[in-house]
Design a protein around this nucleic acid. Structure first.
Length: 664
RNA sequence: GCGGCUGUAGCUCAGCUGGAUAGAGCACCAGAUUCCUAAUCUGGGGGUCGCAGGUUCGAGUCCUGCCAGCCGCACCA
């Protein structure tokens, strides 16, 4: 809707400029600062002032003389220094908006374009399966999930992958912790009580200290890593068990937030199915890697980066792909994985259904499998499926924090040196800054002592056991919400209260993560994150609940008024005051907002628009009562505006994963 | 040293392709509830947009230099 009008206006101005001055000029279209100035603004007269050597307002007048008003526009005016502003036909615009099946569709995409663009693969979450998820991981998962929701809403085929690094050093450390520190058996680990991820959280940091105490113990890490990669032996068995139990916990945590996945891709399968071996052969064929028989990296296979301009100025221009002990680095495995994602590896996984629980939105969750003798027993019970067509995407987006930009660049460079230039170009790193702990929160949780330096935030570290666990935060949010509800709505039953408390806590948390711009480090402050007032998720929810309340009361008191598109189209334009109109007009821009968010990877715009909408609504709510309004036509108009608002904001909330309660 | 990010109100941050009077939340002060439930609203105080140049009719926004902070530049991910 909005975008369509914008394009029409821009085109009309372009033609008018051509007619008046015989100039080719691409007009910029902006939004005026205040609604009474118009609905769209064009500063072209200002831009042309220099070339034409005339006063901007005179130029604007000449353009307006030649201007043919697009359909749906009532008039233009020249404002300020020489802006050409256009005013829409309000009743017609609102009526048209009401007839759209989806408030998101606004003529930006021709039907079918999005699906023709091919599948987008989004990889997110990717928590090492060796400890509980913390709030930094939540930022990743919420951004990834929200991006996936945007792409789906825009009509693009979308596949969400959660990469499970079950053969890496971090899992190895916990295995060493269980076996060498705790002397635990497989059975002990199998039967260890929940929350298992909390248990491992502590064990992981203990293991870290244990290695620090005596570097000779690092040999255990090395040998364990070897076993994990080979997949054979007690330690590998233990690794599988730990990873599986932890992943189950992570998925449960994410399910609380409405985050779900299509497929869990496991690193162990990348090794087992020779994905890496295949990629490694190709790297050798193209001389993208070489064996070092002397020097610092003696005994390693390295990828030279010195040819690429991107890596200029590096101290070490080579990246190790295979370590001297024969184990493979993350980068090596990720190059193979990335090739598979684009469907150029020539190998594929097998899959089996995830055995756990049902996800809310996409109940079919698959995990990778490999029917090698090792896993035959487990596989034969469940059966595998080789016909699923995961992978082979057109666009691949990896949601990974900004600290890993360098590694992501190397993976892309790997694709390039294999000759996959176009795949490298379609390989996108969605980088966001990390989450640290604010000084106050770090102190409250005992991570900072009295003598620690002041005025600094504290970086979280799984290795050191520093961080706020995701489930703890969710529990606290739910408890707070529950207490608030008990106070405000004593009539709520226990179950209703718990359900609502969950909805509110999810909204508070997800909104908190989305509203932050991706380039900014979040210094996580508990008090701030726990806020249910002002610029917060519950603020949005409350505005929608208010609309529902109005409708409930209208029905209860038999005061319903017709608000069909026809009625609105015939309504008196005078009744559409600037503030009512403003609410509708902003709500009609969510398609553009979503489009921009998905393509710039800056999702905070969704949150900002939502907050803006809710704020305008809340203000109107007090100024324009509906139930007490005598004029039936005015009641229709006001209700129409609020229904448009409800549709728009509800849609935005869906995209951000904020649940919408019936009552609060 | 090289690269990336950040510097806007007391605090946390918005500010889209340069444009109309630099905005919001929190905190603080003063108000609004004969109810469409106040998780709300109205009003108020508060700003050398890090500093210095430059480009432009016009710079918080673009360019250059400096200052400060954070993060990368592993045989960890």
């Amino acid at each position: 809707m909005f975008q369509h009008h914008k394009t029409q206006f821009s085109e009309a101005i372009r033609l008018a400029i051509h007619a008046a001055f015989d100039l080719e000029h691409d007009p910029v279209i902006e939004t005026p600062p205040r609604r009474e100035l118009g609905d769209l603004a064009c500063p072209s007269a200002l831009h042309l002032a220099k070339t034409l050597r005339k006063r901007p307002r005179d130029i604007a007048a000449e353009i307006c003389e030649k201007l043919e008003l697009p359909i749906g526009c009532l008039r233009v005016s020249i404002e300020g220094a020489g802006y050409i502003n256009v005013f829409f036909d309000r009743p017609a615009y609102v009526a048209q908006l009401m007839e759209l099946p989806d408030p998101l569709s606004d003529g930006m995409l021709a039907p079918g374009t999005a699906s023709a663009a091919g599948k987008v693969i989004i990889e997110h979450t990717n928590i090492n399966p060796n400890k509980a998820a913390h709030i930094g991981h939540l930022r990743n998962a919420v951004l990834g999930d929200t991006l996936a929701r945007c792409h789906r809403a825009l009509g693009r085929e979308t596949e969400v992958q959660n990469y499970i690094d079950d053969t890496g050093v971090q899992v190895a450390d916990v295995v060493v912790g269980f076996i060498d520190l705790n002397a635990s058996s497989l059975e002990d680990v199998r039967t260890a009580p929940e929350p298992f991820d909390y248990l491992c959280w502590d064990l992981y940091s203990r293991a870290g200290r244990w290695f620090e105490e005596d570097k000779a113990r690092l040999e255990l890490r090395r040998s364990t890593l070897h076993e994990l990669e080979s997949g054979e032996g007690e330690r590998a068995e233990m690794g599988r068990l730990v990873a599986h139990r932890i992943v189950t916990r992570h998925l449960l945590t994410m399910a609380r937030l409405g985050v779900d996945y299509d497929v869990l891709t496991r690193e162990s399968e990348i090794l087992r199915l020779d994905f890496f071996a295949r990629a490694f052969d190709r790297l050798k064929e193209t001389s993208a890697v070489r064996f070092e028989d002397s020097g610092k990296n003696e005994g390693c296979w390295v990828m030279p980066l010195s040819q690429s301009a991107e890596f200029e100025g590096l101290e070490d221009p080579d990246k190790v792909i295979v370590r001297s002990d024969g184990t493979i680095t993350y980068v090596g495995k990720d190059i193979a994985y990335q090739m598979w994602k684009f469907g150029v590896l020539g190998l594929d996984f097998e899959y089996r259904p995830w055995q756990g629980f049902s996800q809310e939105h996409s109940p079919d969750l698959w995990e990778t499998a490999a029917s090698t003798p090792l896993q035959e027993a487990a596989v034969s019970q469940l059966g595998t499926n080789s016909d699923l067509d995961f992978g082979a995407g057109e666009l691949v987006i990896n949601v990974i924090d900004a600290r890993q930009s360098y590694l992501q660049k190397i993976v892309r460079a790997g694709l390039e040196s294999l000759g996959y230039q176009s795949q490298a170009d379609r390989s996108v790193h969605f980088a966001y800054e990390m989450v640290s702990l604010s000084e106050n929160t770090a102190r409250d949780l005992g991570f900072l002592g009295q003598d620690d330096e002041q005025g600094k935030s504290l970086e979280m570290s799984g290795r050191k056991g520093i961080g706020v666990k995701a489930d703890d935060l969710l529990d606290q949010l739910e408890a707070k919400a529950s207490a608030e509800i008990a106070e405000r709505n004593p009539g709520f039953g226990d179950e209703a209260r718990e359900v609502l408390a969950r909805d509110i806590s999810v909204a508070a948390l997800r909104y908190f993560m989305i509203k932050a711009t991706t380039t900014r480090v979040i210094a996580f402050d508990l008090d701030q994150a726990m806020s249910f007032e002002g610029d917060s998720g519950p603020y949005l929810q409350y505005s929608l609940v208010r609309v529902k309340n109005i409708r409930r009361r209208l029905a209860a008191e038999s005061l319903e008024v017709p608000v069909t598109a026809d009625v609105i189209a015939d309504s008196d334009p005078e009744l559409w005051s600037d503030d009512l109109w403003d609410l509708v007009l902003l709500g009609s821009q969510i398609g553009e907002v979503t489009h921009r968010a998905a393509h710039t990877l800056e999702l905070s715009g969704l949150a900002r628009t939502a907050a803006d909408l809710a704020q305008r609504f809340h203000a109107l709510y007090h100024r324009h009562p509906i139930l007490r309004e005598e004029n039936a036509e005015l009641r229709s108009v006001r209700l129409g505006a609020m229904i448009c608002f409800e549709r728009s904001l509800s849609r935005l909330c869906d995209l951000m994963g904020l649940p919408i309660p019936e009552q609060m």
